[in-house]
């Protein structure tokens, strides 16, 4: 597969305000979604929307990073940047999914974990670290879609999965192109240049063997033809659930371990 658009064009596409968000897709991907809230320790973080639903009759746990569709929603969910309680809610529900043998479907869409005083006081680093560790060994199938923005450790926390997909215009990076430019050249305005250098598109991640597949978007744009993408996502979920649910738990976990163990150079 090759890419036609520049990386910067994809960054702009991924950030379009009218690009569908997790809340726009959940009702079409699943039936009877029932939201479950709270980390049972501190609070409920709207940057991660989670709950139970049916996928074509199969019960699943849904963990979705959720950006707002308007200012009011964005204020409530901190523009989709999760606090530690968001990751702890996701971990609580992942363990619950394991208990009831429910597969997990994750949606990643965040500029990054929330950089704030409260987030640090409540252990943002610990929450992300624990999430990485937990998902690497959770005994049910995990399928993750990177919807638009996959920003740094905050996105990675929900990316340790048996199948990892990116939408064609999604980006995934170690930090934002703006942050990258400001560290590298002390100049945020060179974000476009940074984006080209960062290898952050779905095509880049596919070439590096990090993601399993690119979910193609329609030529008229995801925002103008949602069902095109929804159909493609459902096809993957259907195939994956059928394949992954047949595996012995030890095989499932060995394959997941190997998948993440093999990323990057070996010595």
């Amino acid at each position: 597969m090759t890419q036609k658009n520049s990386a910067w064009q994809r960054v702009l596409n991924a950030r379009k305000t009218d690009r569908p968000k997790a809340l726009d897709l959940i009702p079409y991907l699943f039936d009877e979604f029932f939201e479950l809230s709270g980390d049972r320790a501190y609070g409920d973080d709207k940057a991660i929307v989670s709950g139970l639903a049916f996928f074509e009759g199969i019960p699943v746990t849904v963990l979705a990073q959720s950006k707002g569709r308007n200012l009011e929603e964005n204020m409530a969910c901190h523009f989709g940047m999760a606090h530690p309680e968001g990751y702890r809610k996701a971990m609580r529900l992942a363990k619950q999914a394991e208990k009831f043998n429910r597969p997990i479907v994750c949606i990643v869409d965040t500029a990054g974990a929330f950089p704030g005083k409260g987030a640090e006081e409540r252990g943002q680093a610990e929450a992300i670290a624990s999430s990485l560790k937990l998902f690497s060994s959770i005994k049910v199938p995990v399928i993750t879609f990177v919807l638009s923005e996959g920003g740094s450790g905050g996105a990675l926390a929900l990316s340790v999965a048996d199948r990892l997909y990116m939408l064609e215009n999604a980006i995934y990076s170690i930090l934002s192109p703006e942050g990258f430019a400001s560290i590298l050249w002390k100049d945020e305005s060179r974000a476009q240049e940074a984006a080209e250098l960062m290898e952050c598109t779905a095509y880049d991640l596919y070439a590096k063997g990090i993601i399993d597949k690119i979910i193609m978007e329609p030529t008229e744009g995801f925002e103008n033809n949602k069902s095109f993408v929804i159909t493609a996502m459902k096809n993957e979920i259907r195939n994956d659930l059928s394949a992954l649910r047949k595996l012995k738990t030890s095989t499932l976990l060995d394959q997941r371990y190997k998948k993440f163990r093999d990323i990057g150079v070996k010595i």
Partner: peptide, 26 residues
């Protein structure tokens, strides 16, 4: 933190090390 010159591949060293620790822990 992660080494920005190696981009996304350095980010995924976080999940790699955490996965290995999960096994060690178990």
């Amino acid at each position: 933190g992660a080494r920005m010159q190696e981009g996304i591949l350095s980010l995924f060293q976080m999940s790699k090390t955490a996965s290995a620790l999960a096994r060690f822990d178990e």
